[in-house]
């Protein structure tokens, strides 16, 4: 009986995380179109509801009503399994994300490794979708995705190795606690190259512009999801945006001091800003990264495939390796206030 009660509690906690997450995803699509519209000097969605605020609901309604078309030569089981395979890991990661001091579903020791493991699972959705669609474009998109994700995961992993070296822990809450203090105590400053590498690799991992080789409308139509329609397409979309928020959340935890306010610990400003709950600071930091996603999308043209590979292997990975050595030196020298 006690076990069932515990399970129900966990289920309730999962819902408390997932429902706001999905709402955030819905309004991120709206925010994206507004921000990109603003960057292009046009209005963006403004017809449904005040300022177009009901646009995500209308989109969701449209996607639900649409028919799911399964190509006749497709592998049906795998075709329907693929969206689930991409969404499930994207949601599973949120179990270890600390939103505030003590506000985390599973406070596990190997949190950072768990995050890496789950994000690397996401590529299976794309691979299986590309293969099971039995379409040339979809297969090309899937192959590109596999190569890209495996390459950038190395750079991303190394960037996070720098964080765990600095914090001395794999637990995400401990990593945030190690950065306690005002904004110059956070790891973005001593680990600036790693922060940049992490962010670039994060954009590439989520297959967003300018690294969206997986979709590449001008080259391979819509890549791996070319045969998907209706809800099965919407699930891919949901997974992509959930992953975007996730990359922002990990960046906020690892480099921007998680739930701490930027003035934490300063005599006068600190107590004033500490009135704001930590989760608000966390959400603001994550929101900043989401804005950067849209900003980058509106500003840069798509990379060429071989240049993406070159950037990943010959620029980002050497940068992380060099900075890990520099960081070891900083740690040995005990350079304050970080180490």
């Amino acid at each position: 009986m006690a076990e069932i009660q515990e399970l129900l509690w966990i289920l309730a906690k999962i819902l408390v995380i997932v429902i706001p997450l999905f709402t955030a995803v819905a309004y991120m699509t709206y925010a994206e179109r507004k921000v990109v519209g603003w960057a292009h000097v046009r209005k963006g969605p403004n017809k449904i509801g005040i300022w177009g605020l009901l646009q995500p609901l209308a989109d969701a309604g449209k996607l639900v009503m649409k028919e799911i078309i399964i190509p006749s030569a497709a592998n049906k089981v795998m075709f329907l399994l693929a969206p689930v395979l991409s969404l499930a890991p994207a949601l599973a990661v949120w179990a270890v994300i600390p939103f505030d001091e003590g506000l985390v579903l599973a406070d596990i020791n190997v949190g950072l490794l768990y995050v890496l493991a789950m994000t690397s699972m996401g590529v299976y959705g794309v691979l299986v979708a590309g293969w099971s669609s039995n379409s040339k474009y979809a297969l090309l998109g899937a192959l590109r995705s596999a190569a890209q994700v495996v390459s950038y995961e190395i750079a991303m992993g190394f960037a996070l190795v720098g964080v765990l070296m600095a914090a001395g822990s794999l637990n995400l809450s401990d990593i945030v606690r190690a950065q306690e203090g005002p904004f110059w105590h956070w790891y973005w400053l001593p680990l600036l190259p790693l922060f940049m590498v992490y962010w670039i690799a994060g954009v590439a991992e989520t297959n967003r512009l300018p690294f969206d080789m997986v979709e590449g409308e001008s080259e391979i139509v819509a890549g791996f999801q070319v045969e998907y329609s209706g809800m099965s397409f919407a699930v891919f979309f949901l997974a992509e945006y959930t992953n975007m928020i996730l990359v922002g959340a990990i960046a906020a935890i690892a480099f921007l001091g998680g739930w701490y306010s930027p003035f934490h610990g300063i005599p006068v400003l600190g107590p004033i800003f500490d009135v704001v709950p930590g989760i608000v600071w966390f959400c603001l930091k994550v929101g900043f990264f989401q804005f950067c996603y849209f900003w980058i999308r509106a500003s840069f043209p798509r990379y060429r495939y071989d240049q993406i590979m070159r950037l990943g292997w010959k620029v980002l990975i050497p940068v992380t390796l060099v900075w890990l050595v520099v960081e070891s030196g900083l740690i040995l020298a005990g350079v304050g206030p970080w180490f």
Binding site: L113, A117, S120, M121, V123, L127, G130, L139, A142, L143
Partner: peptide, 22 residues
């Protein structure tokens, strides 16, 4: 346990699938 997922599921099997799919 987690390293098994990172290394084998996240990297080795992706490349394996990559080849098998082709």
């Amino acid at each position: 346990g987690v390293v098994l997922v990172v290394v084998y599921v996240g990297a080795v099997m992706v490349l394996f699938l990559f080849v098998v799919m082709m």
